[in-house]
Design a protein around this nucleic acid. Structure first.
Lengths: 138, 138
DNA sequence: CAATAAGTCTATATATTTTGTAGGTTTTAT
DNA sequence: ATAAAACCTACAAAATATATAGACTTATTG
């Protein structure tokens, strides 16, 4: 399951995507719309900004806005940013790899092999779908 | 990511699958092999038994053994048993459904629609692969 | 039939992660 | 100058995952 953080990130991105023509959007506007704590959402938006999805403007009249096209924001990137690995085991993670302590040999581990396949097929799905797909469903 | 519980469950199932012809296997044998706490593994094996994957025998000479063919144990069932939902959001879970509090209408939620598609494609993968696939990779 | 070996069960303790909060700092428009 | 808004760091609370304890039941064997 996705964490709330990631779910909220998707909500925020969706909202900003829908209102791309309206300039900077207040954190508060989004937090009220979805009933998310202002402060919690603040952290999330900041992460999305640092990752290059959002821009922001400080001071009066400030707020956040999308700086990437919705087609350029795959679900996989958002999930990895806020939740971490997509793979089901650390030993098959591309971005957060860690060997299993209990494993003598990764090469001779059937679980490892299956999970690599699961990872590859899952990634295909999550890399192919983007914020654009979410927006089209609203 | 899978919990350790689920990973350990896969290890145990794999071990029992490899030693199907050797009758009942001790918890201790498996826990030593993979460096899993005896008591922790105990709980896991009990759950697998209650779910109908394993049988057991008490007393001296007792232990656990597979009572299903490895082809009849899809990864999806093991994951659901020990980790819960496979879906990325509660509002698209088939087995653990819960509506989102922040959502006015699930029908008009783009996130919901995308996640249903992701769920369906993920499930295809996890339902199709079984313990047999793990065993073949060892 | 006593001793021992093993699984069963329920409850609790510990560790880790997730979720949420506090409060000050910086920037910008008016 | 003031107020509005994002930025930043640290911490607190809650939830979940991991691990442990100890008594109970069942089966084997000498």
């Amino acid at each position: 399951m996705l964490s709330k953080k990631t779910k909220y990130a998707f909500h925020a991105l969706t909202y900003l995507g829908k209102h791309r023509d309206q300039g900077a959007i207040l954190i508060q506007e989004i937090s009220e719309k979805y009933g998310i704590s202002h402060k919690f959402l603040e952290n999330i938006l900041l992460e999305l900004k640092k990752a290059g999805f959002l821009g922001s403007k400080k001071g009066k009249g400030g707020g956040y806005y999308l700086i990437k096209a919705p087609t350029e924001i795959p679900l996989s990137k958002v999930i990895r940013l806020l939740d971490g690995p997509i793979a089901l085991l650390p030993c098959v993670s591309l971005n957060y790899y860690e060997p299993c302590e209990e494993c003598e040999s990764q090469e001779r581990c059937g679980l490892n092999k299956v999970m690599i396949k699961v990872r590859d097929e899952t990634l295909k799905i999550l890399e192919m779908r983007t914020l654009q797909d979410i927006l089209e469903g609203e």
